[in-house]
């Protein structure tokens, strides 16, 4: 049974790495946010799988549940932070932040 979990963990990790490319190079700010959100969801699945792999799922599932709730709050918070700046200005989204 362990081999199933190991393979799934590897698949999810590869998916996370692929999405990380979008987070780093995403042309717009929202793309990066989307990538972070996707990685968060994949992290929850990863936690559940690692819990079963480590043979004490209860411990990891608690973390996964907390992560699911906090991930949502984080996404809403960042969106709220940028909401006023984004409004009606696609350029604010597509242009890179002045450093």
């Amino acid at each position: 049974m362990d081999i199933v979990y190991v393979v799934s963990v590897v698949v999810v990790l590869v998916g996370m790495l692929a999405v990380l490319k979008r987070v780093i190079s995403g042309p717009t700010l929202l793309d990066r946010l989307l990538g972070v959100n996707v990685i968060g969801t994949k992290t929850i699945v990863l936690l559940a799988l690692i819990g079963f792999l480590a043979d004490r799922p209860g411990f990891f599932l608690d973390i996964a549940l907390a992560y699911a709730l906090i991930n949502f709050i984080a996404t809403i918070a960042v969106l709220r932070h940028f909401e006023a700046r984004f409004r009606g200005r696609a350029s604010a989204v597509t242009e890179e932040e002045p450093s």
Binding site: N37, T75, I76, L79, E83, R87, G88, R89
Partner: peptide, 16 residues
Amino acid sequence: TSTHALARAAWLAGLK
């Protein structure tokens, strides 16, 4: 819901 919020933010920003 986060997907909805993201799409909404993009649409309101005027992303075509």
